[in-house]
C-alpha cells in the first residue's frame, strides 16, 4: 500500500504543470507567461503552437556548448501590448549571449510589441507567413534575417545591431520601421525581387544604410524611404551598390522622402538640414 502511494506521489509530481523552462520539445499547444528561463534550445514541433502572454520575459542561457534559443516548426503567437511588452533576452549580459528564434516552414506566426536584446540574430525566418510589428531589436548581432515569406515587418525599431535586417530571396513588405544606429541598416544579400521596402526611416547607420551583397548584380528597389538627408550625394554615401562596385546591383532609391516618416518608432537619428531627431518622449536609454 505504501509503495502504491509513493508511486502515485511520483506520478503526480511529474504530471503537475511546471514552469515553462529547461530545454527540449514542445509537442502540444503551450502558453508561456511570467518569467521563462530557456536553457539551450526548445523546439516547437509542427502542429503545436507556442503562445506567449503580454509582459512575459524569456531569458536564454547556454546548455553546454548549445546556445539558448527557440526552433519553431509549429507556430509562435507572441502578442505583447504597448504597456506590457514581451522581452526576449539573455540570462547574462553581453553580445551574442543567446542564439536566435529560428522559424522554418512554420504555420502563420505573429510577434508584436516585443523586445529582442543580446541575440546572435533576434529572428531567423524561412518559408513562413510571419508578421513582426511594433518590436524593438536592440544590441543584437543582427535583428531579422529571412528567406522567402511572406513577411510583414512593420513599425519596428532596429538600433545598436551589427545588421538591422538581412534578406535572402525574401518576399516581404517592410514599412514604417526605424532602422538607425546599426552598422548596416538593411543588407540585401541576394534575390531582391520580392521585397517592398518603403516608408521607412533608414538613417544614421554607421557603415551603410543599405548594403547590396557582392553576389547580387540586379537592381534593388528601395524608393520612398527617408535616408537621413534630402541630398543625393549624402544618401549615396551611405549606400553600397553599383556606384561603389560595378559588379553589384544598383539601389533604386529615388524618389525618396524629404523628411522622416511620422508615426514610426523614434530614435536619435539624422533629420532634415542636419538636425537630430530625439528618441520618443525625450527619454535617454542606453541601447547598447
Amino acid at each position: 500500500m505504501k509503495m502504491k502511494r509513493a508511486a502515485l506521489f511520483i506520478l503526480l509530481c511529474l504530471l503537475t504543470p511546471r514552469p515553462a523552462a529547461g530545454s527540449g520539445l514542445i509537442a502540444s499547444d503551450t502558453l508561456w507567461s511570467g518569467v521563462v528561463r530557456v536553457e539551450g534550445k526548445i523546439t516547437v514541433q509542427k502542429g503545436s503552437t507556442l503562445s506567449i502572454a503580454p509582459g512575459t520575459v524569456i531569458k536564454f542561457s547556454d546548455k553546454g556548448d548549445e546556445k539558448g534559443g527557440l526552433n519553431i516548426f509549429g507556430r509562435i503567437v507572441a502578442r505583447g501590448t504597448q504597456g506590457q511588452r514581451i522581452v526576449f533576452t539573455s540570462d547574462k549580459k553581453g553580445q551574442e549571449a543567446w542564439d536566435e528564434i529560428y522559424i522554418n516552414s512554420a504555420g502563420p506566426s505573429v510577434i508584436s510589441w516585443a523586445d529582442f536584446r543580446h541575440a546572435t540574430w533576434g529572428m531567423h525566418v524561412h518559408f513562413t507567413h510571419m508578421e513582426i510589428s511594433h518590436c524593438r531589436f536592440i544590441g543584437n548581432e543582427g535583428g531579422i534575417r529571412f528567406r522567402s515569406g511572406p513577411m510583414l515587418i512593420e513599425e519596428n525599431l532596429f538600433t545598436g545591431n551589427h545588421i538591422g535586417i538581412r534578406a535572402y530571396f525574401g518576399e516581404a513588405m517592410i514599412r514604417r520601421n526605424t532602422i538607425s544606429g546599426n552598422n548596416i541598416g538593411i543588407f540585401v544579400s541576394q534575390g531582391p525581387e520580392g521585397l517592398q521596402i518603403s516608408g521607412n526611416n533608414i538613417a544614421g547607420n554607421d557603415w551603410y544604410n543599405l548594403r547590396i551583397g557582392d553576389f547580387e548584380p540586379k537592381p534593388v528597389r528601395v524608393s520612398g524611404n527617408w535616408w537621413g538627408s534630402p541630398e543625393q550625394s549624402a544618401i549615396e554615401s551611405r549606400i553600397y551598390d553599383k556606384r561603389r562596385d560595378s559588379h553589384v546591383g544598383e539601389a533604386i532609391y529615388r524618389p525618396f522622402l524629404a523628411a522622416p516618416v511620422e508615426n514610426s518608432p523614434a530614435v536619435s537619428m539624422p533629420g532634415p538640414a542636419g538636425s537630430i531627431i530625439q528618441k520618443e518622449n525625450g527619454q535617454k536609454e542606453d541601447f547598447k
Binding site: G22, K41, I42, K63, N71
Partner: peptide, 13 residues
Amino acid sequence: AFSGVGVSQACVG
C-alpha cells in the same frame, strides 16, 4: 519526452 536534447537547426540558406 519533455527533456530531450534540443534539436540544432542549420540555416537552409
